[in-house]
């Protein structure tokens, strides 16, 4: 799947989980850019992403992400 397509899917997940239709995610987005993206919603986002793409992350992988682009790279490395 192309990166822009993964970004679009992730955006849909963020809108749904964070219950904010105005959210626009880019590869450069970090948690501080999104008001509702806190430690608790981060867990719900990861769970929703794992469910949607039918993949599993490790805690090490998640801790290594600094922005959405690293999340997307990780998703692609799972064969998506």
């Amino acid at each position: 799947m192309e990166r822009f397509e993964i970004t679009q899917k992730i955006n849909t997940i963020f809108v749904d989980v964070l219950d904010n239709e105005d959210i626009v995610i880019t590869e450069n987005t970090i948690a501080n850019d999104v008001e509702e993206w806190d430690s608790l919603t981060h867990i719900q986002l990861v769970v929703a992403i794992e469910k949607y793409f039918k993949i599993r992350f490790t805690s090490k992988e998640i801790q290594s992400w600094n922005d959405v682009s690293e999340m997307i790279t990780c998703i692609q490395e799972k064969g998506i």
Partner: peptide, 11 residues
């Protein structure tokens, strides 16, 4: 129904 080791979360 779900176990997510990455974030230590269970559903």
């Amino acid at each position: 129904d779900g176990y997510y080791e990455s974030v230590k979360s269970i559903e």
